[in-house]
């Protein structure tokens, strides 16, 4: 074949990308406390341990609360910003959008540290609420990126037509724009949810005494005895996020089909 070299490379690259993840179930089902070859035998006890772990359940509950709130807030803020960015031109727009999108290129440690300093100075007690504040900040730019694509594939004359046919600006938004960008909103919400669920640094700095799933995982990684259970947890998480992603992708494609635009590829 003509590009066989390139094809072989692509295959090797996928192996590189997937190797760490492929190893998760291998050790999650391995009946041995040491994470090494050769394997010992099949067991489900790590999963059993996982589901009995109450600290983990607490961390998971916290994480789900944080991720859900982040998802709603970041998507709402994202809708405002994406709508503004795709529909209007105004002086200062580049600056405003630049600030909002800044967390994309800012090391998360900086976001975390600066928020921490301000929250402590303002006397705000650290909790999962402060984690939500930080997560919304970093998830919003991703939400905007997804929503921008949804909003910019809208023909502007659609809303002018509704306005022209007697609707107000608000009812136009409700009757025309919202239904057409709904798939984008769903995939933005799923993305913000996933980002928040996986975010470590900000949660590490801002959660105070409380734990989220990543900070819990981080704390357990120091104890070799706990590693097999973490492998089981990782396996569960991989399955969940693949399902979530597939849903997001499904809605993104449906959105493209609905507005009759062309598919320009993944999460760009």
């Amino acid at each position: 074949m003509k590009f066989s070299g390139l094809r072989a490379y692509a295959f090797l690259y996928l192996v590189f990308l997937y190797a760490p993840i492929a190893l998760l179930p291998v050790f999650a089902f391995n009946d041995g406390t040491v994470i090494a070859f050769p394997l010992k035998g099949f067991t489900l006890k790590w999963f059993a341990q996982l589901f009995e772990n109450e600290t983990l359940a607490g961390a998971l509950t916290n994480s789900l609360i944080v991720a859900f709130s982040t998802s709603v807030l970041a998507t709402t803020l994202g809708i405002f910003a994406a709508r503004s960015a795709t529909r209007y031109n105004y002086p200062g727009k580049a600056g405003a959008m630049g600030l909002i999108m800044l967390p994309l290129v800012l090391p998360e440690i900086i976001v975390a540290v600066s928020l921490l300093v301000v929250l402590l100075a303002a006397g705000v007690p650290l909790s999962i609420l402060t984690v939500i504040l930080g997560h919304v900040l970093v998830a919003t730019p991703y939400a905007i990126a997804v929503l921008n694509a949804a909003f910019s594939s809208l023909d502007r004359s659609l809303e002018e037509a509704a306005y022209d046919l007697g609707e107000t600006k608000w009812s136009t938004f409700r009757l025309i724009i919202l239904p057409l960008v709904t798939p984008g909103i769903i995939s933005s919400a799923l993305m913000a949810f996933t980002i928040s669920l996986d975010e470590f640094i900000i949660a590490f700095f801002l959660a105070g005494e409380q734990t989220t799933l990543p900070t819990y995982i981080y704390s357990q990684l120091r104890f070799p005895k706990q590693i097999p259970m973490i492998m089981a947890l990782g396996t569960v998480l991989v399955v969940c996020s693949v399902m979530l992603l597939a849903t997001a992708e499904y809605f993104r494609r449906r959105g493209i089909a609905k507005t009759g635009a062309k598919d320009t590829g993944g999460f760009l």
Binding site: T76, G78, A81, R87, N89, Y90, A96, L99, I100, T140
Partner: peptide, 21 residues
Amino acid sequence: EAASGWFMVSPTLIYAMLLLA
């Protein structure tokens, strides 16, 4: 257009000002 644009972006912008800038 400018007013509409600023109005629309303001919730997100205010959030970024308070919690980032």
